[in-house]
Design a binder for these strands. Structure first.
Lengths: 177, 177
DNA sequence: ATGTTACTTGACATGATGTCAATTGACTCA
DNA sequence: TGAGTCAATTGACATCATGTCAAGTAACAT
Protein backbone atom coordinates (compact mmCIF):
# COMPACT_ATOMS: atom_id res chain seq x y z
CA UNK A 1 0.00 0.00 0.00
CA UNK A 2 2.83 2.38 0.81
CA UNK A 3 4.37 1.71 -2.61
CA UNK A 4 1.04 2.34 -4.32
CA UNK A 5 0.58 5.65 -2.55
CA UNK A 6 4.23 6.74 -2.55
CA UNK A 7 4.26 6.67 1.24
CA UNK A 8 1.52 9.26 1.63
CA UNK A 9 -1.94 9.06 3.12
CA UNK A 10 -1.89 5.47 4.30
CA UNK A 11 -3.76 5.46 7.60
CA UNK A 12 -3.97 2.85 10.31
CA UNK A 13 -7.56 2.14 9.33
CA UNK A 14 -6.54 1.48 5.71
CA UNK A 15 -3.90 -0.98 6.79
CA UNK A 16 -6.36 -2.67 9.12
CA UNK A 17 -8.96 -3.02 6.39
CA UNK A 18 -6.47 -4.54 3.98
CA UNK A 19 -5.54 -7.07 6.67
CA UNK A 20 -9.21 -7.79 7.42
CA UNK A 21 -8.80 -6.46 10.93
CA UNK A 22 -10.34 -3.74 12.98
CA UNK A 23 -8.26 -0.61 13.39
CA UNK A 24 -7.81 -1.31 17.08
CA UNK A 25 -6.57 -4.86 16.46
CA UNK A 26 -3.54 -3.47 14.64
CA UNK A 27 -2.48 -1.93 17.94
CA UNK A 28 -2.41 -5.43 19.42
CA UNK A 29 0.54 -6.07 17.09
CA UNK A 30 2.25 -2.69 16.79
CA UNK A 31 2.29 -0.12 19.55
CA UNK A 32 2.12 2.80 17.15
CA UNK A 33 2.17 3.75 13.51
CA UNK A 34 5.86 4.54 13.83
CA UNK A 35 6.59 1.09 15.15
CA UNK A 36 4.63 -0.51 12.34
CA UNK A 37 6.54 1.49 9.72
CA UNK A 38 9.86 0.65 11.31
CA UNK A 39 8.98 -3.04 11.40
CA UNK A 40 7.91 -2.83 7.75
CA UNK A 41 11.27 -1.34 6.80
CA UNK A 42 13.13 -4.12 8.58
CA UNK A 43 10.95 -6.72 6.93
CA UNK A 44 11.64 -5.21 3.52
CA UNK A 45 15.37 -5.03 4.14
CA UNK A 46 15.37 -8.67 4.96
CA UNK A 47 13.19 -9.66 2.04
CA UNK A 48 15.13 -7.62 -0.49
CA UNK A 49 18.38 -8.99 0.90
CA UNK A 50 20.41 -5.82 0.97
CA UNK A 51 23.51 -7.71 2.05
CA UNK A 52 23.61 -9.80 -1.11
CA UNK A 53 22.99 -6.75 -3.25
CA UNK A 54 26.00 -5.07 -1.71
CA UNK A 55 28.34 -7.93 -2.65
CA UNK A 56 29.47 -6.47 -6.01
CA UNK A 57 30.46 -3.26 -4.30
CA UNK A 58 32.41 -5.08 -1.60
CA UNK A 59 34.11 -7.28 -4.17
CA UNK A 60 35.36 -4.33 -6.22
CA UNK A 61 39.07 -4.29 -6.88
CA UNK A 62 39.47 -0.57 -7.47
CA UNK A 63 38.09 2.54 -5.86
CA UNK A 64 36.34 3.65 -9.01
CA UNK A 65 34.77 0.25 -9.46
CA UNK A 66 33.61 0.25 -5.87
CA UNK A 67 32.08 3.69 -6.20
CA UNK A 68 30.29 2.72 -9.39
CA UNK A 69 29.00 -0.54 -7.93
CA UNK A 70 27.79 1.18 -4.78
CA UNK A 71 25.92 3.83 -6.71
CA UNK A 72 24.30 1.15 -8.88
CA UNK A 73 23.34 -0.96 -5.89
CA UNK A 74 21.81 1.95 -4.04
CA UNK A 75 20.15 3.36 -7.13
CA UNK A 76 18.41 0.07 -7.79
CA UNK A 77 17.47 -0.35 -4.14
CA UNK A 78 15.79 3.00 -3.55
CA UNK A 79 12.83 2.47 -5.89
CA UNK A 80 12.06 -0.77 -4.08
CA UNK A 81 11.87 0.83 -0.69
CA UNK A 82 10.63 4.24 -1.74
CA UNK A 83 7.11 3.93 -0.31
CA UNK A 84 8.13 2.91 3.18
CA UNK A 85 11.11 5.22 3.14
CA UNK A 86 8.96 8.19 2.24
CA UNK A 87 6.42 7.35 4.93
CA UNK A 88 9.18 7.14 7.51
CA UNK A 89 10.72 10.32 6.17
CA UNK A 90 7.44 12.16 6.66
CA UNK A 91 6.87 10.73 10.11
CA UNK A 92 10.40 11.52 11.18
CA UNK A 93 9.54 15.21 11.46
CA UNK A 94 7.03 14.58 14.21
CA UNK A 95 8.05 11.29 15.78
CA UNK A 96 11.29 10.73 17.64
CA UNK A 97 11.29 6.94 17.24
CA UNK A 98 10.78 7.25 13.49
CA UNK A 99 13.59 9.82 13.35
CA UNK A 100 15.92 7.49 15.22
CA UNK A 101 15.08 4.56 12.96
CA UNK A 102 15.62 6.67 9.86
CA UNK A 103 18.90 8.10 11.08
CA UNK A 104 20.04 4.64 11.86
CA UNK A 105 19.40 3.48 8.31
CA UNK A 106 21.03 6.54 6.87
CA UNK A 107 24.07 5.95 9.04
CA UNK A 108 24.39 2.49 7.49
CA UNK A 109 24.11 4.00 4.02
CA UNK A 110 26.75 6.54 4.99
CA UNK A 111 29.11 3.73 5.92
CA UNK A 112 28.85 2.48 2.37
CA UNK A 113 29.67 5.94 1.08
CA UNK A 114 32.66 6.19 3.37
CA UNK A 115 33.89 2.78 2.25
CA UNK A 116 33.71 3.89 -1.37
CA UNK A 117 35.53 7.13 -0.60
CA UNK A 118 38.16 5.25 1.37
CA UNK A 119 38.66 2.88 -1.53
CA UNK A 120 39.24 5.87 -3.83
CA UNK A 121 41.65 7.31 -1.30
CA UNK A 122 43.55 4.04 -1.07
CA UNK A 123 43.99 4.20 -4.86
CA UNK A 124 45.12 7.83 -4.53
CA UNK A 125 42.20 8.54 -6.78
CA UNK A 126 40.32 10.96 -4.52
CA UNK A 127 40.40 14.46 -5.96
CA UNK A 128 42.70 16.76 -4.02
CA UNK A 129 39.90 19.22 -3.24
CA UNK A 130 38.33 16.70 -0.89
CA UNK A 131 39.02 15.43 2.58
CA UNK A 132 37.68 11.95 3.13
CA UNK A 133 35.02 13.24 5.54
CA UNK A 134 33.92 15.98 3.17
CA UNK A 135 33.76 13.61 0.22
CA UNK A 136 31.70 11.15 2.26
CA UNK A 137 29.28 13.92 3.25
CA UNK A 138 28.93 15.01 -0.34
CA UNK A 139 28.37 11.53 -1.75
CA UNK A 140 25.98 10.63 1.05
CA UNK A 141 23.93 13.75 0.43
CA UNK A 142 23.91 13.27 -3.33
CA UNK A 143 22.56 9.76 -2.92
CA UNK A 144 19.74 10.76 -0.57
CA UNK A 145 16.27 9.37 -1.08
CA UNK A 146 15.01 12.94 -1.46
CA UNK A 147 17.37 13.50 -4.37
CA UNK A 148 16.33 10.24 -5.98
CA UNK A 149 12.73 11.36 -5.62
CA UNK A 150 13.50 14.77 -7.06
CA UNK A 151 15.33 13.45 -10.08
CA UNK A 152 12.92 10.65 -10.94
CA UNK A 153 9.58 12.15 -9.98
CA UNK A 154 10.11 15.88 -10.56
CA UNK A 155 12.68 15.72 -13.35
CA UNK A 156 11.31 12.57 -14.95
CA UNK A 157 14.55 10.62 -15.08
CA UNK A 158 14.08 6.89 -15.53
CA UNK A 159 15.78 4.79 -12.91
CA UNK A 160 18.33 3.68 -15.47
CA UNK A 161 19.10 7.30 -16.20
CA UNK A 162 19.35 7.99 -12.49
CA UNK A 163 21.91 5.24 -12.01
CA UNK A 164 23.93 6.10 -15.10
CA UNK A 165 24.00 9.81 -14.47
CA UNK A 166 24.63 9.46 -10.77
CA UNK A 167 27.65 7.35 -11.57
CA UNK A 168 28.92 10.12 -13.81
CA UNK A 169 28.19 12.73 -11.17
CA UNK A 170 29.90 10.84 -8.39
CA UNK A 171 32.92 10.07 -10.50
CA UNK A 172 33.32 13.61 -11.85
CA UNK A 173 32.81 15.02 -8.38
CA UNK A 174 35.17 12.81 -6.45
CA UNK A 175 37.75 11.22 -8.72
CA UNK A 176 41.08 12.88 -9.50
CA UNK A 177 41.92 13.33 -13.18
CA UNK B 1 9.53 32.18 15.18
CA UNK B 2 9.94 29.88 12.21
CA UNK B 3 13.67 30.61 12.15
CA UNK B 4 13.94 29.93 15.88
CA UNK B 5 12.20 26.59 15.53
CA UNK B 6 13.66 25.59 12.15
CA UNK B 7 10.20 25.64 10.65
CA UNK B 8 8.80 22.96 12.95
CA UNK B 9 6.05 23.05 15.55
CA UNK B 10 4.91 26.63 15.10
CA UNK B 11 1.14 26.55 15.50
CA UNK B 12 -1.48 29.14 14.69
CA UNK B 13 -2.02 29.76 18.39
CA UNK B 14 1.70 30.48 18.89
CA UNK B 15 1.71 32.99 16.08
CA UNK B 16 -1.44 34.60 17.46
CA UNK B 17 0.04 34.92 20.94
CA UNK B 18 3.20 36.51 19.63
CA UNK B 19 1.04 39.04 17.78
CA UNK B 20 -1.13 39.64 20.86
CA UNK B 21 -4.14 38.31 19.05
CA UNK B 22 -6.59 35.52 19.59
CA UNK B 23 -6.07 32.45 17.47
CA UNK B 24 -9.30 33.13 15.61
CA UNK B 25 -8.30 36.70 14.79
CA UNK B 26 -5.40 35.41 12.70
CA UNK B 27 -7.99 33.88 10.39
CA UNK B 28 -9.37 37.38 9.82
CA UNK B 29 -6.07 38.11 8.05
CA UNK B 30 -5.07 34.78 6.53
CA UNK B 31 -7.54 32.18 5.35
CA UNK B 32 -5.34 29.26 6.39
CA UNK B 33 -1.97 28.35 7.77
CA UNK B 34 -0.78 27.64 4.25
CA UNK B 35 -1.76 31.12 3.11
CA UNK B 36 0.02 32.68 6.05
CA UNK B 37 3.19 30.76 5.29
CA UNK B 38 3.03 31.66 1.62
CA UNK B 39 2.53 35.33 2.48
CA UNK B 40 5.46 35.13 4.88
CA UNK B 41 7.68 33.73 2.14
CA UNK B 42 6.73 36.51 -0.22
CA UNK B 43 7.33 39.09 2.47
CA UNK B 44 10.77 37.63 3.15
CA UNK B 45 11.67 37.53 -0.53
CA UNK B 46 10.83 41.18 -0.80
CA UNK B 47 12.67 42.15 2.37
CA UNK B 48 15.78 40.16 1.50
CA UNK B 49 15.75 41.58 -2.00
CA UNK B 50 16.54 38.46 -3.94
CA UNK B 51 16.72 40.39 -7.20
CA UNK B 52 19.64 42.51 -6.02
CA UNK B 53 21.43 39.48 -4.68
CA UNK B 54 21.21 37.84 -8.08
CA UNK B 55 22.92 40.76 -9.82
CA UNK B 56 26.48 39.36 -9.58
CA UNK B 57 25.36 36.15 -11.21
CA UNK B 58 23.61 37.96 -14.02
CA UNK B 59 26.58 40.24 -14.56
CA UNK B 60 29.02 37.34 -14.96
CA UNK B 61 31.06 37.37 -18.15
CA UNK B 62 31.83 33.66 -18.31
CA UNK B 63 29.86 30.50 -17.70
CA UNK B 64 32.10 29.41 -14.88
CA UNK B 65 31.84 32.77 -13.21
CA UNK B 66 28.10 32.70 -13.54
CA UNK B 67 27.87 29.24 -12.04
CA UNK B 68 30.07 30.20 -9.14
CA UNK B 69 28.19 33.44 -8.47
CA UNK B 70 24.84 31.66 -8.61
CA UNK B 71 25.93 29.00 -6.16
CA UNK B 72 27.24 31.67 -3.80
CA UNK B 73 24.08 33.73 -4.06
CA UNK B 74 21.84 30.78 -3.40
CA UNK B 75 24.07 29.36 -0.68
CA UNK B 76 23.92 32.62 1.23
CA UNK B 77 20.20 32.99 0.67
CA UNK B 78 19.05 29.59 1.94
CA UNK B 79 20.05 30.09 5.60
CA UNK B 80 18.02 33.29 5.65
CA UNK B 81 14.84 31.63 4.49
CA UNK B 82 15.38 28.22 5.98
CA UNK B 83 12.70 28.44 8.68
CA UNK B 84 9.86 29.45 6.39
CA UNK B 85 11.11 27.21 3.62
CA UNK B 86 11.15 24.20 5.90
CA UNK B 87 7.66 24.95 7.21
CA UNK B 88 6.38 25.20 3.64
CA UNK B 89 8.27 22.06 2.71
CA UNK B 90 6.56 20.16 5.51
CA UNK B 91 3.13 21.52 4.69
CA UNK B 92 3.56 20.80 1.00
CA UNK B 93 3.04 17.08 1.63
CA UNK B 94 -0.50 17.62 2.86
CA UNK B 95 -1.59 20.93 1.36
CA UNK B 96 -2.05 21.53 -2.34
CA UNK B 97 -1.75 25.33 -2.12
CA UNK B 98 1.50 25.05 -0.19
CA UNK B 99 2.77 22.54 -2.75
CA UNK B 100 1.93 24.90 -5.59
CA UNK B 101 3.63 27.84 -3.88
CA UNK B 102 6.73 25.78 -3.18
CA UNK B 103 6.91 24.38 -6.70
CA UNK B 104 6.58 27.88 -8.02
CA UNK B 105 9.57 29.07 -6.02
CA UNK B 106 11.56 26.02 -7.00
CA UNK B 107 10.76 26.65 -10.63
CA UNK B 108 12.25 30.13 -10.29
CA UNK B 109 15.35 28.66 -8.70
CA UNK B 110 15.55 26.15 -11.52
CA UNK B 111 15.57 29.00 -14.04
CA UNK B 112 18.72 30.28 -12.39
CA UNK B 113 20.28 26.85 -12.70
CA UNK B 114 19.34 26.64 -16.35
CA UNK B 115 20.79 30.08 -17.01
CA UNK B 116 24.07 29.01 -15.44
CA UNK B 117 24.13 25.79 -17.46
CA UNK B 118 23.30 27.71 -20.64
CA UNK B 119 26.15 30.12 -19.93
CA UNK B 120 28.52 27.17 -19.62
CA UNK B 121 27.16 25.74 -22.83
CA UNK B 122 27.62 29.06 -24.62
CA UNK B 123 31.30 28.95 -23.58
CA UNK B 124 31.49 25.33 -24.77
CA UNK B 125 32.45 24.59 -21.20
CA UNK B 126 29.68 22.10 -20.40
CA UNK B 127 31.09 18.61 -19.94
CA UNK B 128 30.24 16.34 -22.84
CA UNK B 129 28.47 13.82 -20.60
CA UNK B 130 25.65 16.28 -20.06
CA UNK B 131 22.71 17.52 -22.01
CA UNK B 132 21.61 20.97 -20.96
CA UNK B 133 18.41 19.61 -19.46
CA UNK B 134 20.18 16.89 -17.55
CA UNK B 135 22.80 19.27 -16.22
CA UNK B 136 20.07 21.67 -15.10
CA UNK B 137 18.26 18.86 -13.28
CA UNK B 138 21.45 17.79 -11.57
CA UNK B 139 22.47 21.28 -10.48
CA UNK B 140 18.95 22.10 -9.34
CA UNK B 141 18.77 18.95 -7.25
CA UNK B 142 22.20 19.48 -5.77
CA UNK B 143 21.25 22.96 -4.63
CA UNK B 144 18.01 21.87 -2.97
CA UNK B 145 17.09 23.20 0.45
CA UNK B 146 17.02 19.61 1.70
CA UNK B 147 20.63 19.13 0.66
CA UNK B 148 21.63 22.39 2.29
CA UNK B 149 19.93 21.19 5.46
CA UNK B 150 21.62 17.83 5.26
CA UNK B 151 25.08 19.22 4.77
CA UNK B 152 24.89 21.98 7.36
CA UNK B 153 22.71 20.41 10.04
CA UNK B 154 23.54 16.70 9.74
CA UNK B 155 27.11 16.93 8.47
CA UNK B 156 28.00 20.08 10.40
CA UNK B 157 29.34 22.08 7.47
CA UNK B 158 29.50 25.82 8.13
CA UNK B 159 27.70 27.92 5.57
CA UNK B 160 31.04 29.11 4.23
CA UNK B 161 32.08 25.50 3.77
CA UNK B 162 28.77 24.78 2.07
CA UNK B 163 29.29 27.57 -0.44
CA UNK B 164 32.94 26.77 -1.11
CA UNK B 165 32.43 23.06 -1.46
CA UNK B 166 29.26 23.39 -3.48
CA UNK B 167 31.15 25.57 -5.93
CA UNK B 168 33.76 22.84 -6.25
CA UNK B 169 31.10 20.18 -6.65
CA UNK B 170 29.16 22.09 -9.28
CA UNK B 171 32.26 22.93 -11.24
CA UNK B 172 33.74 19.43 -11.12
CA UNK B 173 30.37 17.96 -12.02
CA UNK B 174 29.48 20.19 -14.93
CA UNK B 175 32.53 21.86 -16.42
CA UNK B 176 34.56 20.26 -19.16
CA UNK B 177 38.28 19.86 -18.50
C1' DA C 1 -27.53 58.14 17.25
C1' DT C 2 -25.81 54.95 13.90
C1' DG C 3 -22.82 52.20 11.67
C1' DT C 4 -18.25 50.27 10.80
C1' DT C 5 -14.08 47.95 11.99
C1' DA C 6 -11.23 44.93 14.40
C1' DC C 7 -11.29 42.06 17.65
C1' DT C 8 -12.94 38.77 21.61
C1' DT C 9 -15.05 34.62 23.65
C1' DG C 10 -16.97 30.25 23.46
C1' DA C 11 -18.68 26.44 21.08
C1' DC C 12 -18.28 23.16 17.59
C1' DA C 13 -16.75 20.10 13.40
C1' DT C 14 -13.15 17.27 11.40
C1' DG C 15 -9.63 13.76 11.02
C1' DA C 16 -5.99 11.03 12.68
C1' DT C 17 -3.79 8.65 16.50
C1' DG C 18 -4.04 6.23 20.43
C1' DT C 19 -6.51 4.12 24.80
C1' DC C 20 -9.77 1.49 27.48
C1' DA C 21 -13.47 -1.67 28.93
C1' DA C 22 -16.58 -5.16 28.02
C1' DT C 23 -17.60 -8.92 25.13
C1' DT C 24 -17.22 -12.95 21.92
C1' DG C 25 -15.72 -17.27 19.69
C1' DA C 26 -12.35 -20.75 19.24
C1' DC C 27 -9.21 -23.57 21.10
C1' DT C 28 -6.69 -26.23 24.95
C1' DC C 29 -6.12 -28.81 28.91
C1' DA C 30 -7.10 -31.21 33.25
C1' DT D 1 -17.46 -30.64 31.20
C1' DG D 2 -15.64 -26.55 33.01
C1' DA D 3 -11.88 -23.18 33.35
C1' DG D 4 -8.65 -20.51 31.29
C1' DT D 5 -6.33 -18.34 27.40
C1' DC D 6 -5.93 -15.92 23.12
C1' DA D 7 -7.08 -13.02 19.34
C1' DA D 8 -10.13 -10.19 17.95
C1' DT D 9 -14.47 -7.24 18.12
C1' DT D 10 -17.40 -3.11 19.27
C1' DG D 11 -18.12 1.24 21.05
C1' DA D 12 -16.74 5.07 23.63
C1' DC D 13 -13.46 8.37 24.69
C1' DA D 14 -9.07 11.55 24.96
C1' DT D 15 -5.94 14.51 22.43
C1' DC D 16 -4.34 17.86 19.19
C1' DA D 17 -4.31 20.98 15.45
C1' DT D 18 -6.97 23.26 11.97
C1' DG D 19 -10.68 25.64 10.66
C1' DT D 20 -15.69 27.63 11.22
C1' DC D 21 -19.50 30.12 13.20
C1' DA D 22 -22.27 33.15 16.11
C1' DA D 23 -22.80 36.63 19.37
C1' DG D 24 -20.91 40.29 21.70
C1' DT D 25 -17.84 44.52 22.60
C1' DA D 26 -14.91 48.75 22.47
C1' DA D 27 -13.11 52.43 19.68
C1' DC D 28 -13.95 55.39 16.30
C1' DA D 29 -16.26 58.17 12.39
C1' DT D 30 -20.08 60.57 10.32
Amino acid sequence: MLEEHRGRGVRMVDIAKRANLSRQAVYLHFASRAELLIATTQFLDHRLDLETRLAPSRAATSGMQRLSAYVACWGNYVPEIYGVAKALLLLKESDAAAAAAWNNRMAAMRDGCRAAVDALHADSALALEWTRGGATDALWTMLSVENWENLTVECGWSNQQYVDRMKVMAERMLVKR
